[in-house]
Computed example of a mutant assay.
Amino acid sequence: MRVLHVYKTYLPDDFTGVPRVIHALVEGMAQHGVQSHVLALSKTHGGTERTVDNHRVHLAKQDINIASAGLSLSGFGLFRRLARDADIVNYHFPWPMADLLHLLGRPKAPSVVTYHSDIVRQKNLLKLYAPVQNLFLSQVDAIVATSPNYVRTSAVLANFPDKTSVVPIGIPDVTPPAAALVESWRDKVGEGFFLFVGALRYYKGLQFLMAAARETGLPVVVAGGGDTTEWAEMGGPSVRFVGPVSDDDKIALLELCRAFVFPSHIRSEAFGVALAEAARAGRAMISCEIGTGTSFVNLGGETGLVVPPEDVPALGAAMRTLAAAPDQAADYGLRARARYENMFRAEAMAGAYLELYRQLIAGR
């Protein structure tokens, strides 16, 4: 089986969010003999092809970027060539150019949309784009959401109940961090802190975490790329910004922390892969109820605590609760690890997609 994945960015330019999910999926598929190809855009590597681990990446030159949506003229010809040889085309939504690739390219292979998120921020442009979006989603063969929570709360997915199913995002297992690396981080930031890991983006709710840190005085470590200028002074002396970290560093920090705190406050945070990584590490979690997959990964009262979004007193109270009750935090962590084993392994995600692909091919 040959599968073509289509998304706006990928390695070597981007390995966060959706690209990381695509990588876990295609590498899981490789274990079943599936040949995976990824079509993406690149400002610096356009027109090139490369092998990444066990799959092939094809990069078209990005000509323009409008509202975080890259466009490429050469991408249309590249898509037609790649789709011609594909048994399945899997689009990763949202990316408006993918809609056009499908509607104009008209691939013969069955098509799947992995629906990662509604379009949340560009509301004015959405009014113009909505007819194209709805036509695209009506024509594809299957839509896969990443959590039942998102299916229940997405007005877009409500229009396509008969073709929508749920496959949770899965992440691969990792080896424990080297003892020397853990000790190095212990020397830098201590232990028993509250950890945030992620890009410092508008929807991550960092302003509320900073306010809660200042209010409680509890230690917080923030790891991730982005401009910290606006946040650095808000959190006070108990907050440490450590910048972007490698996967190994992230695993070491998770081993040292008391709990993982994830204050994303709007629907742009559709799932929260970082929460799944915290569950994999067996750490209690604090997240916000925003009607998305964050409350699917972190079950309130079972794997951690769930608080209202933008509610600094509630966030601070949750942090105080786990700081004062290490046994409870540890119990949440054990339950989180068990939930990861049952729900969020990369192998399970790959297996579910493979079954869907086979059904669609057989149906044709």
Rank of each mutant, 00 (worst) to 15 (best):
F160I: 01
A352P: 08
F296P: 00
L41C: 14
D13E: 11
W231T: 12
P110N: 06
A145P: 04
K43W: 07
Q62C: 11
D311L: 03
N124A: 15
D85Y: 10
R240F: 04
P131F: 12
V297Q: 11
A338P: 02
D13A: 10
K8D: 12
Y332N: 06
A362G: 14
K204A: 15
L59Y: 03
L135H: 05
Y332F: 14
F15I: 15
S184Q: 13
D248Y: 02
G170C: 11
V6M: 03
W95H: 01
G351V: 05
Q328S: 06
L253S: 00
G243K: 06
L71F: 03
E347M: 07
L41T: 10
L299C: 14
V89A: 07
V297M: 09
L71H: 00
Y353V: 00
E302Q: 13
P308I: 02
T321M: 09
R152W: 03
R201A: 12
R267I: 03
L360I: 09
P172G: 09
V197A: 10
L356H: 11
T175R: 05
G224W: 04
P177C: 10
A180Q: 06
V3F: 01
L125W: 14
A24N: 13
A352Q: 12
V189L: 07
P131Y: 11
V52E: 12
A199N: 15
A24S: 15
V273Y: 00
V306C: 05
Q359A: 12
L137Y: 01
V26D: 02
Q31P: 06
R337S: 06
I266V: 12
A346T: 01
F262I: 05
S238H: 09
A259D: 02
V34T: 07
E49R: 13
R258D: 04
G28M: 06
L360G: 11
Q122K: 14
L209R: 13
N90G: 05
